[in-house]
Each structure stands twice: as C-alpha cells, then as structure tokens.
C-alpha cells in the first residue's frame, strides 16, 4: 500500500473525529472532494486520503472551529494547505513583487543559511513590507515588528491571529491576539492599523497564484 495514503479508518483513529464529522465537513466543503480517493481492497471499496494534507487540514479545522461557523471556516480554508508547502527564493519574491527589495535586504535574514523562504516567513515579510510601504511605520518599528512576529507567531500553531499596531505618546507597541478579537484601549492610544492573518493570507494568496 502507498505510504503517503491513509485509510478512512486509520484517519479517524488517529485524529479522534467521527464519521459524522468527516461527512459534515465534506458537505460544507471543508475537505475537498478530490481528496477522497477510492480504492478497492480485500474488504471491498475503501476510501483513502493523502496523508500529510488531510492531517494538516483536520488539525486546522479543529483549531479554528471554535468561534467560527463552518461556512466561514470553509472560506478561510479554501486552498490554504497547498500554500503552506510553498517555498520561494529571494529572487522569486522580488520578481513577483510580493515583498520589496528594500524590506527583503533589511529583514530577509530569517532563513538560517537556507535559500528558500517558507510560507510562514513569507507572511512575516509580507506583513512588515505592507506596513512599511503604507508609510505608517518607521524602520525601527519594522525591526521590532519583524522580531515580534518571528518570535511569537509560531506560538499560535496555525490558529488565526490579529495584529494591532498602536502608538501612545510616541511609543509604539505591537499586540498579537487570537482572532476574532476585540480590543479596547484608553483614550491616549491611537490604533494605527489592524491586520488579521486571514486578510494577509488572502492577499498573499492572490499574489502567489
């Protein structure tokens, strides 16, 4: 049997979800139809899935399903998993106009010796570049943001987050909160920008495809 395929039964054992959940998610288009691979085995027909992708997707669904309806989730998930495996080199990033050359030169040293940027690193670069190019953030602040994201974004483990960029009396802070979130500040605080991972992914997706 193929190593990178997983049978339906094994999948349910491994993830602890039930048949009902699996079918419900399929109906809601959380799991694409073409991941269901039918094969005949000695017990009759069995359904198989591509192992890595389905496990990642189910992990995502379980993590994200609190606070979101299944329909919202479906929009969010549609084709994110294929992006997670993308890796781009510095030249690619610049030539595709995803991140500006300047940002890349200054903050592009995320990869330790490797030539390609992973998707998570791309998100960080893109976020920094987005705020820099909008003129709302200075270079020093960008430094801080890049550092914050590198250190903390991984802690969300694939869950969606919101980034709050606030200033008070000339002092800048970045706040990362699990989305959907609603923060209330005191009067002296000015909310410069609010970005959500979902939006960033959407934009990035547009640029990559």
């Amino acid at each position: 049997m193929d190593k990178d395929l997983i049978s339906k039964k094994e999948l349910l054992d491994l993830t602890g979800i039930s048949y009902g959940q699996l079918y419900r998610w399929k109906r809601k288009k959380l799991i694409p139809e073409d991941w269901f691979i039918r094969k005949s085995t000695f017990t009759g027909q069995e359904t198989f899935f591509p192992k890595q992708t389905i496990l990642a997707r189910i992990h995502n669904i379980i993590n994200m399903k609190d606070g979101l309806s299944l329909d919202e989730l479906a929009d969010k998930l549609s084709d994110m998993s294929s992006l997670n495996s993308t890796a781009l080199t510095a030249e690619d990033i610049v030539s595709r106009n995803i991140v500006s050359q300047m940002t890349l030169n200054k903050f592009g040293n995320l990869t330790s010796g490797q030539s390609a940027y992973s998707f998570e690193q791309l998100i960080i670069l893109y976020t920094v570049d987005y705020l820099l190019s909008s003129g709302e953030m200075s270079l020093e602040e960008a430094e801080l943001l890049s550092q914050t994201l590198v250190e903390t974004a991984a802690k969300f483990e694939g869950k969606s987050w919101d980034l709050y960029f606030v200033r008070k009396m000339g002092v800048t802070s970045f706040i990362l909160a699990l989305s959907p979130s609603e923060l209330v500040f005191d009067e002296g605080v000015r909310l410069v920008n609010k970005l959500s991972l979902g939006d960033l992914l959407e934009q990035l997706k547009g640029k990559l495809s």
Partner: peptide, 10 residues
C-alpha cells in the same frame, strides 16, 4: 430504497 453509500451523523 437503494443507496450506493450512506454517510451520516444519525
């Protein structure tokens, strides 16, 4: 009644 396959919660 006939169905090729049925997948349900209940």
């Amino acid at each position: 009644s006939k169905a090729n396959e049925i997948g349900v919660e209940s």
